[in-house]
């Protein structure tokens, strides 16, 4: 809980700020994650594009093996998002895992964090499985070709936005700190004659 503050009193007792609407919906992490998944699903890369890319660049003999790996990736995605979700959400999660692991050989801290941020707590075995699947799917393909595909298709890697406002501003993190009177050592207060007069 925040300590008592002047601005808290002003918010409560003056008429110069917006009164908080207690009926307003307060969002929790679960709602936020769902919204994030929804936004991700609208971004450029789709499951269909991944399937097409992975199969068209590999010989027909390997199609079956690739299809099997893609199915395994979908299964791992289902374990991560939860089986109660529909095909669309599961495919979108598989896209996310494909993007996350396309240039990784193991599940590192960053990848774990990214998956948890998107889907919440998940079984680590599913992350391991999806990482291994993506590695096997992409092993026969040239790294540069995969990288081009991801860059071109994914808005996550290719944001169509301007540069961030304020990136060149020299920001100071300095803050106000306790600045007591210099000539008033703490030891002085024990003597009984000290006062804050100055």
């Amino acid at each position: 809980m925040s300590p008592p503050r002047l601005t808290g009193a002003l918010r409560s007792f003056s008429n110069v700020s917006k009164k908080e609407d207690v009926t307003e919906q307060l969002y929790d992490l679960k709602t936020k994650r769902l919204k994030r998944q929804e936004l991700f699903a609208r971004e450029g890369l789709t499951w269909q594009k991944i399937v097409h890319f992975c199969t068209e660049h590999q010989g027909k003999a390997k199609h079956q093996a690739v299809s099997q790996e893609l199915k395994s990736l979908l299964l791992a995605a289902k374990q991560i998002v939860g089986s109660e979700h529909g095909q669309e959400i599961i495919e979108s999660a598989a896209v996310f895992l494909f993007e996350t692991f396309h240039n990784k050989d193991h599940v590192g801290t960053e990848e774990t964090r990214a998956i948890k941020q998107m889907f919440g707590p998940f079984p680590s075995s599913a992350a391991e499985a999806s990482c291994a699947c993506v590695a096997r799917i992409l092993a026969p393909l040239e790294d540069s070709r995969v990288e081009d595909f991801i860059q071109n298709q994914s808005s996550r890697h290719n944001p169509q936005r301007g540069s961030m406002f304020g990136r060149n501003i020299a920001f100071s993190y300095e803050s106000y700190t306790i600045d007591p009177l210099e000539d008033l050592p703490w030891s002085g207060i024990q003597e009984g004659n000290t006062s804050l007069d100055f």
Partner: peptide, 13 residues
């Protein structure tokens, strides 16, 4: 109140 908060949080540096 927001302006006062901005001053005390960011004003120093």
């Amino acid at each position: 109140p927001k302006i006062l908060d901005l001053c005390v949080l960011f004003g120093k540096g």
